[in-house]
Design a protein around this nucleic acid. Structure first.
Lengths: 365, 365
DNA sequence: CTTGGGTATGAAACCGCTTTCTTTGTCGAG
DNA sequence: CTCGACAAAGAAAGCGGTTTCATACCCAAG
């Protein structure tokens, strides 16, 4: 049970005691040297057993493997990385880690990454100009997936400078030379709007979104406006509102509209489920029954959507798939760095629930 | 704009073209050598400028820094790690990444980690015996925080073998020699139960938990039972049920109980918010009004709790704090490896909302 | 009995950085 | 004027791997 006193200073220099003799293997993890000694071969052979077994005779290979087991040898990841310039670690930067939204994306990403033998280094980039220190562990990463909710050239530049393969997730449409995973928010909004139009007047349709600068908000609004226009009734400014992605904003907006008697018989496409829920709440407070007096559609299909009453018709974003696709794209790029940039667009799907199914329809069906 | 064709094989050996001359810096990232050359100093000096500036004269330091900027030099993380045996990357293994629950924890952990200049490598360990490859990027990690919902010596052993500093989160109480972050579920359950007892009969109190094997379930049940016992009425077996942490289980259980006429005037402590919501749902379907005919308390204070109607009284777990504490503990351990193992217990808090505030009480107040 | 082509190994060159050891000045003190 | 202490900078020894290049052997072909 010999202990290495050496380490107590926490800054022992290289070598010295170590290099002199391989006699009593100290409590330092076994190195390839130790294995080589134990198996009475050269370190080259050990390395080959691990990386190119077919170059080694069966006999010695067995010997080496035995030594490896005996010593519990694990190749040093840093040394390995230094040579191979590879870590099998992918970074993923989210605008904000919390909330079920992003965690679903993480879920998919993690699964896909592990399937290919990669690991995931997450980071909420909600710091911008905080610490001066390196924000992301660039340099350790084999690749980086970035999700930008709002334009942010800063991180892009940093990442580019570091020369890390990059994949953009659901963000900057203007990103030229990068692989991009997109969610077809516009299409989702179109489907939702069409659904509304099938059961209410174009002039009675409303869009209540989040911040106008937000990429997602913009394309959802666009889809809404497009369908209305195509139906022959271009939306008036009053039919589209922008605010926050919050319950309160939805509730406030709806309360105002109801006060002016505008929401009865209307159809509302909310920017996300929270807003939708706010609208429903305001409606209920004002005595309006949601499926019957007012149609409401959300966005994102959060857990909320299937739990509230009435259950919420909403546009489901395939988050886990987005995460998985991002990772897959990243791995592709890593493996063939010179392939042309690709962009993948994932389609959301409309989940019809009670909030757009008035009684007459339910029976009618 | 010269390009390196070299890399096309994707397995170029070391050196050759590179070592021969430092003339035209290839598109390979600048190394410390390049900086040294540019500044006309030795690499040792460059290193010192970065790590021990006080050993370098102001003049040369400036020169070196200029070179660094000019070349956009970033020290190679692998080489650095090889020497310092440090990566500033912390691993965090969760039983299952998805769900707002864990993402909140991640949020806290991430914030704390970045505050100290560390990075977070997450991983859902929902694989056990999947891929044979190394599951966690041990070896790259400076430390590892593990959250085990159910006993799982496997990972523990692996991690121990890798010699990585370890912190256990809200899990195995029997873990001897490790730092542990705990959530005082029992205390939370006690508070909740006491709250119930203040407005209903002990014999009408029920606990509806998740899986019995689950650590959390166990301690929550324990707290419930303890308070009842202390109030002089030890809970009968029928007052405690175990199932799943799901809406459906809560709803099913409640439906059954209501069918037997047992829930009117009762108080229910659910194992989590989902179960609680299931109970509320069943009650509503059976015509019971929740704050008035039946008290319900949840656990976890998920977003759901404040959004449903009635809003849910629940026990809030300080998840972000848990994550932050875990990271902090890990960093402590890394910085002083020989400090005695610590365990930190975080207290949940009871959030009283409508589901336990019958009308008479609200007015009474 | 050479000679040529495999096959199995070892020796050694690096990867890029940190840190000890040395070396070289510079000065104030003796 | 000489000497020792001290500050600044370089040379070089690794860290633990991977991969080239060279070596040694074995065997069939000439």
């Amino acid at each position: 049970m010999k202990r290495v006193i050496n380490k107590s200073t926490s800054r022992s220099p290289g070598g010295s005691a170590r290099a002199s003799s391989r006699v009593a293997s100290a409590r330092t993890a076994a190195s390839i040297q130790d294995v080589a000694a134990e198996a009475a071969v050269s370190i080259a052979t050990v390395s080959r057993v691990l990386n190119n077994p077919n170059l080694v005779s069966e006999g010695t290979a067995t010997k080496v493997r035995a030594a490896i087991d005996k010593l519990g040898y694990r190749p040093n990841a840093f040394a390995q990385g230094l040579m191979t310039r590879t870590s099998r670690v992918l970074g993923i930067a989210l605008p904000d880690i919390h909330g079920e939204f992003y965690s679903q994306l993480l879920l998919g990403a993690d699964a896909e990454a592990r399937k290919s033998g990669y690991h995931l280094l997450v980071s909420s980039d909600a710091r911008a100009g905080d610490m001066p220190g390196p924000n992301l562990a660039f340099g350790l990463l084999d690749g980086l997936a970035i999700m930008l909710t709002e334009p942010n050239p800063q991180i892009l530049k940093e990442a580019n400078a570091a020369g890390v393969p990059l994949v953009l997730v659901d963000g900057d449409p203007s990103a030229g030379a990068h692989d991009v995973i997109l969610v077809d928010n516009e299409s989702g909004a179109r489907d939702a709007t069409a659904h509304l139009l099938s059961r209410c007047q174009p002039s009675h349709c409303y869009f209540v979104g989040g911040p106008k600068e937000n990429f997602d908000t913009a394309s959802r609004a666009k889809g809404f406006a497009a369908v209305l226009s195509e139906s022959g009734s271009k939306p008036k400014p009053a039919q589209m509102a922008f605010g926050q992605y919050s319950f309160e904003w939805g509730r406030g907006w709806a309360a105002g509209m109801i006060g002016r008697g505008l929401l009865r018989g209307a159809g509302v496409l909310a920017g996300n489920d929270d807003i939708a829920y706010g609208v429903i709440h305001a409606a209920r407070e004002a005595g309006l029954v949601v499926p019957d007096d007012l149609l409401v559609i959300g966005f994102d299909d959060t857990r909320l959507a299937s739990l509230i009453q009435p259950t919420l018709t909403t546009v489901r974003i395939p988050l886990p798939e987005v995460g998985a696709a991002a990772v897959r794209a990243l791995i592709n790029r890593i493996e063939s760095p010179d392939a042309p940039a690709e962009s993948l667009m994932l389609k959301p799907s409309l989940i019809v629930r009670e909030s757009t199914s008035p009684r007459e329809w339910r029976h009618g069906k």
